[in-house]
Amino acid sequence: MLLHADNVRVRFGGVTAVDGASLQVAAGEFLGLIGPNGSGKTTLFNSITGDQKVSEGRIHFNGQDVTGWAKYKRARAGLARTYQNVQVFPEMLVTENLIFAAEARGQSPSPQRVRELVDFLSLTHLAHERAGNLSYGQKKLLSIGLAVISDPQILLLDEPMAAVNPVMVDLIAERLDALNKLGVTIVLVEHNLPIVLKHCSRVAVLNFGRIIYNGPATGVRADDGVAEAYLGRAYSLPAKVPS
Protein backbone atom coordinates (compact mmCIF):
# COMPACT_ATOMS: atom_id res chain seq x y z
CA MET A 1 0.00 0.00 0.00
CA LEU A 2 1.22 3.49 -0.79
CA LEU A 3 -0.78 5.11 2.00
CA HIS A 4 -2.25 3.53 5.09
CA ALA A 5 -4.10 5.58 7.69
CA ASP A 6 -4.48 3.06 10.48
CA ASN A 7 -7.23 3.46 13.06
CA VAL A 8 -6.87 7.23 13.14
CA ARG A 9 -8.63 9.11 15.90
CA VAL A 10 -8.65 12.91 16.22
CA ARG A 11 -10.28 14.63 19.16
CA PHE A 12 -10.94 18.35 19.62
CA GLY A 13 -11.80 18.65 23.30
CA GLY A 14 -14.97 16.63 23.73
CA VAL A 15 -15.58 16.24 19.98
CA THR A 16 -14.18 13.24 18.16
CA ALA A 17 -13.80 14.41 14.56
CA VAL A 18 -12.22 11.20 13.28
CA ASP A 19 -13.16 8.10 15.19
CA GLY A 20 -10.89 5.19 14.37
CA ALA A 21 -10.96 5.60 10.59
CA SER A 22 -8.69 3.37 8.53
CA LEU A 23 -7.95 4.02 4.90
CA GLN A 24 -5.64 2.25 2.51
CA VAL A 25 -4.69 3.63 -0.88
CA ALA A 26 -2.78 1.63 -3.47
CA ALA A 27 -0.31 3.21 -5.90
CA GLY A 28 -2.02 4.49 -9.04
CA GLU A 29 -5.48 4.46 -7.50
CA PHE A 30 -8.10 7.22 -7.89
CA LEU A 31 -10.01 7.10 -4.62
CA GLY A 32 -13.04 9.22 -3.76
CA LEU A 33 -13.59 10.17 -0.13
CA ILE A 34 -17.12 11.40 0.45
CA GLY A 35 -19.44 12.00 3.37
CA PRO A 36 -21.71 14.58 4.95
CA ASN A 37 -20.42 17.96 6.08
CA GLY A 38 -18.62 17.57 9.39
CA SER A 39 -18.02 13.85 8.88
CA GLY A 40 -14.25 14.26 9.31
CA LYS A 41 -12.99 14.15 5.72
CA THR A 42 -10.82 17.25 5.96
CA THR A 43 -9.61 16.31 9.43
CA LEU A 44 -8.58 12.88 8.12
CA PHE A 45 -6.78 14.64 5.25
CA ASN A 46 -5.09 16.96 7.71
CA SER A 47 -3.97 13.99 9.79
CA ILE A 48 -2.44 12.34 6.75
CA THR A 49 -0.60 15.45 5.58
CA GLY A 50 0.56 16.56 9.03
CA ASP A 51 -1.65 19.65 9.30
CA GLN A 52 -3.29 17.98 12.27
CA LYS A 53 -1.77 15.75 14.94
CA VAL A 54 -3.58 12.48 15.50
CA SER A 55 -4.82 11.60 18.97
CA GLU A 56 -4.46 7.89 18.21
CA GLY A 57 -3.50 5.75 15.24
CA ARG A 58 -0.65 5.71 12.76
CA ILE A 59 -0.04 7.07 9.29
CA HIS A 60 2.12 4.94 7.01
CA PHE A 61 3.33 6.28 3.70
CA ASN A 62 5.43 4.36 1.24
CA GLY A 63 6.35 1.79 3.88
CA GLN A 64 7.39 4.37 6.48
CA ASP A 65 5.61 5.42 9.64
CA VAL A 66 5.24 9.19 9.09
CA THR A 67 2.94 9.85 12.06
CA GLY A 68 5.46 12.04 13.86
CA TRP A 69 6.83 13.75 10.77
CA ALA A 70 6.48 17.47 10.21
CA LYS A 71 4.20 18.59 7.41
CA TYR A 72 7.04 19.79 5.18
CA LYS A 73 8.84 16.48 5.55
CA ARG A 74 5.77 14.54 4.42
CA ALA A 75 5.42 16.86 1.45
CA ARG A 76 9.04 16.22 0.50
CA ALA A 77 8.42 12.49 0.78
CA GLY A 78 5.77 12.83 -1.94
CA LEU A 79 2.54 13.63 -0.11
CA ALA A 80 0.96 16.64 -1.81
CA ARG A 81 -2.34 18.29 -1.10
CA THR A 82 -4.73 21.11 -1.91
CA TYR A 83 -6.96 22.86 0.59
CA GLN A 84 -10.74 23.23 0.75
CA ASN A 85 -10.37 27.01 0.85
CA VAL A 86 -8.32 27.66 -2.24
CA GLN A 87 -4.78 28.66 -1.29
CA VAL A 88 -2.10 30.18 -3.49
CA PHE A 89 0.56 32.85 -2.96
CA PRO A 90 -1.39 35.90 -4.17
CA GLU A 91 1.51 38.35 -4.55
CA MET A 92 3.58 35.95 -6.64
CA LEU A 93 3.10 35.47 -10.35
CA VAL A 94 1.54 32.22 -11.51
CA THR A 95 4.94 30.97 -12.67
CA GLU A 96 6.60 32.06 -9.42
CA ASN A 97 4.01 30.09 -7.46
CA LEU A 98 4.96 26.97 -9.38
CA ILE A 99 8.71 27.61 -9.18
CA PHE A 100 8.49 28.12 -5.43
CA ALA A 101 6.46 24.94 -4.94
CA ALA A 102 9.15 22.95 -6.75
CA GLU A 103 12.00 24.68 -4.93
CA ALA A 104 10.33 24.05 -1.58
CA ARG A 105 10.77 20.34 -2.23
CA GLY A 106 14.40 20.86 -3.16
CA GLN A 107 13.84 20.76 -6.92
CA SER A 108 14.88 23.26 -9.53
CA PRO A 109 12.26 23.20 -12.28
CA SER A 110 13.31 24.00 -15.82
CA PRO A 111 11.47 26.85 -17.57
CA GLN A 112 10.10 24.24 -19.95
CA ARG A 113 8.65 22.20 -17.08
CA VAL A 114 6.95 25.30 -15.67
CA ARG A 115 5.63 26.24 -19.11
CA GLU A 116 4.28 22.75 -19.69
CA LEU A 117 2.48 22.73 -16.39
CA VAL A 118 1.04 26.19 -16.97
CA ASP A 119 -0.25 24.94 -20.33
CA PHE A 120 -1.58 21.76 -18.74
CA LEU A 121 -3.52 23.86 -16.23
CA SER A 122 -4.91 26.03 -19.05
CA LEU A 123 -3.31 29.10 -17.45
CA THR A 124 -1.00 29.95 -20.34
CA HIS A 125 -2.46 33.41 -20.92
CA LEU A 126 -2.14 34.16 -17.18
CA ALA A 127 1.39 32.85 -16.64
CA HIS A 128 2.77 36.28 -15.73
CA GLU A 129 -0.28 37.47 -13.84
CA ARG A 130 -0.30 37.78 -10.07
CA ALA A 131 -2.03 34.77 -8.57
CA GLY A 132 -4.20 37.07 -6.49
CA ASN A 133 -5.76 38.42 -9.68
CA LEU A 134 -6.95 35.01 -10.91
CA SER A 135 -10.56 33.90 -10.75
CA TYR A 136 -11.59 31.40 -8.10
CA GLY A 137 -11.56 28.49 -10.56
CA GLN A 138 -8.19 29.50 -11.95
CA LYS A 139 -6.81 29.64 -8.43
CA LYS A 140 -8.12 26.11 -7.89
CA LEU A 141 -6.21 24.98 -10.96
CA LEU A 142 -3.08 26.77 -9.78
CA SER A 143 -3.37 25.18 -6.35
CA ILE A 144 -3.41 21.78 -8.08
CA GLY A 145 -0.32 22.92 -10.00
CA LEU A 146 1.45 23.74 -6.71
CA ALA A 147 0.78 20.21 -5.58
CA VAL A 148 1.80 18.40 -8.76
CA ILE A 149 4.84 20.35 -10.01
CA SER A 150 7.25 18.22 -8.00
CA ASP A 151 5.76 14.92 -9.21
CA PRO A 152 4.24 13.75 -5.93
CA GLN A 153 3.44 10.13 -5.33
CA ILE A 154 0.02 10.90 -3.98
CA LEU A 155 -2.26 13.88 -4.39
CA LEU A 156 -4.87 14.66 -1.74
CA LEU A 157 -7.47 17.06 -3.11
CA ASP A 158 -9.96 18.68 -0.77
CA GLU A 159 -13.03 19.74 -2.74
CA PRO A 160 -11.18 21.06 -5.79
CA MET A 161 -14.45 21.58 -7.66
CA ALA A 162 -16.46 23.34 -4.96
CA ALA A 163 -17.90 26.74 -5.98
CA VAL A 164 -16.56 26.39 -9.49
CA ASN A 165 -18.59 26.79 -12.69
CA PRO A 166 -19.50 23.64 -14.68
CA VAL A 167 -16.98 24.30 -17.46
CA MET A 168 -14.20 24.64 -14.92
CA VAL A 169 -15.42 21.51 -13.10
CA ASP A 170 -15.07 19.53 -16.32
CA LEU A 171 -11.64 21.01 -16.94
CA ILE A 172 -10.40 20.18 -13.43
CA ALA A 173 -11.85 16.66 -13.64
CA GLU A 174 -10.23 16.11 -17.02
CA ARG A 175 -6.86 17.28 -15.71
CA LEU A 176 -7.11 15.02 -12.65
CA ASP A 177 -7.90 12.08 -14.90
CA ALA A 178 -4.87 12.89 -17.02
CA LEU A 179 -2.64 13.07 -13.92
CA ASN A 180 -3.96 9.73 -12.69
CA LYS A 181 -3.22 8.17 -16.08
CA LEU A 182 0.32 9.51 -15.73
CA GLY A 183 0.62 7.44 -12.55
CA VAL A 184 -0.24 9.97 -9.83
CA THR A 185 -2.28 8.41 -7.05
CA ILE A 186 -5.25 10.62 -6.19
CA VAL A 187 -7.53 10.85 -3.18
CA LEU A 188 -10.42 13.17 -3.91
CA VAL A 189 -12.75 14.70 -1.34
CA GLU A 190 -15.70 16.04 -3.28
CA HIS A 191 -19.43 16.60 -2.95
CA ASN A 192 -19.99 16.52 -6.70
CA LEU A 193 -21.10 12.89 -6.75
CA PRO A 194 -21.43 12.40 -10.53
CA ILE A 195 -17.80 13.48 -10.89
CA VAL A 196 -16.69 11.16 -8.07
CA LEU A 197 -18.58 8.21 -9.50
CA LYS A 198 -17.33 8.89 -13.01
CA HIS A 199 -13.64 9.27 -12.22
CA CYS A 200 -12.94 7.29 -9.05
CA SER A 201 -12.42 3.57 -9.15
CA ARG A 202 -13.08 3.18 -5.44
CA VAL A 203 -15.03 5.24 -2.94
CA ALA A 204 -14.78 5.49 0.84
CA VAL A 205 -17.61 7.10 2.77
CA LEU A 206 -17.00 8.78 6.09
CA ASN A 207 -19.75 9.48 8.62
CA PHE A 208 -19.23 10.76 12.18
CA GLY A 209 -15.52 10.12 11.73
CA ARG A 210 -15.95 6.45 10.76
CA ILE A 211 -15.63 4.74 7.41
CA ILE A 212 -19.08 3.32 6.67
CA TYR A 213 -18.41 2.23 3.11
CA ASN A 214 -15.22 1.30 1.34
CA GLY A 215 -15.60 -0.35 -2.03
CA PRO A 216 -16.17 0.07 -5.73
CA ALA A 217 -17.68 3.36 -6.90
CA THR A 218 -20.38 1.43 -8.70
CA GLY A 219 -21.72 0.03 -5.45
CA VAL A 220 -21.92 3.17 -3.36
CA ARG A 221 -25.43 4.20 -4.42
CA ALA A 222 -26.80 0.78 -3.55
CA ASP A 223 -25.49 0.88 0.02
CA ASP A 224 -28.21 1.47 2.59
CA GLY A 225 -25.87 3.00 5.15
CA VAL A 226 -24.54 5.54 2.64
CA ALA A 227 -28.04 6.38 1.47
CA GLU A 228 -29.10 6.95 5.04
CA ALA A 229 -26.11 9.05 6.04
CA TYR A 230 -25.25 11.01 2.93
CA LEU A 231 -26.97 10.43 -0.39
CA GLY A 232 -30.59 10.37 0.68
CA ARG A 233 -33.14 7.87 -0.58
CA ALA A 234 -34.03 9.77 -3.73
CA TYR A 235 -30.47 9.74 -5.02
CA SER A 236 -29.88 6.09 -4.25
CA LEU A 237 -33.25 4.89 -5.65
CA PRO A 238 -32.39 4.56 -9.36
CA ALA A 239 -29.49 2.30 -8.56
CA LYS A 240 -31.63 0.02 -6.44
CA VAL A 241 -34.60 -0.20 -8.80
CA PRO A 242 -33.42 -0.90 -12.35
CA SER A 243 -35.60 0.70 -14.97
Binding site: A70, Y72, R81, F89, M92
Partner: peptide
Protein backbone atom coordinates in the same frame (compact mmCIF):
# COMPACT_ATOMS: atom_id res chain seq x y z
CA UNK B 1 16.16 34.26 -6.07
CA UNK B 2 14.95 31.15 -4.29
CA UNK B 3 15.60 32.51 -0.80
CA UNK B 4 13.51 35.59 -1.51
CA UNK B 5 10.69 33.41 -2.81
CA UNK B 6 10.86 31.20 0.28
CA UNK B 7 10.52 34.17 2.62
CA UNK B 8 7.81 35.76 0.51
CA UNK B 9 5.91 32.46 0.58
CA UNK B 10 6.14 32.44 4.38
CA UNK B 11 4.85 36.00 4.52
CA UNK B 12 1.99 35.20 2.18
CA UNK B 13 0.89 31.84 3.49
CA UNK B 14 3.16 29.93 5.85
CA UNK B 15 0.90 26.89 6.11
CA UNK B 16 0.75 26.49 2.35
CA UNK B 17 4.50 27.01 2.08
CA UNK B 18 5.02 24.13 4.51
CA UNK B 19 2.49 22.00 2.64
CA UNK B 20 4.62 22.60 -0.46
CA UNK B 21 7.59 21.12 1.41
CA UNK B 22 9.31 24.19 2.82
CA UNK B 23 11.04 23.94 6.18
CA UNK B 24 9.63 27.32 7.21
Amino acid sequence: GARGRRLLAIRENEDLAEACGLNA
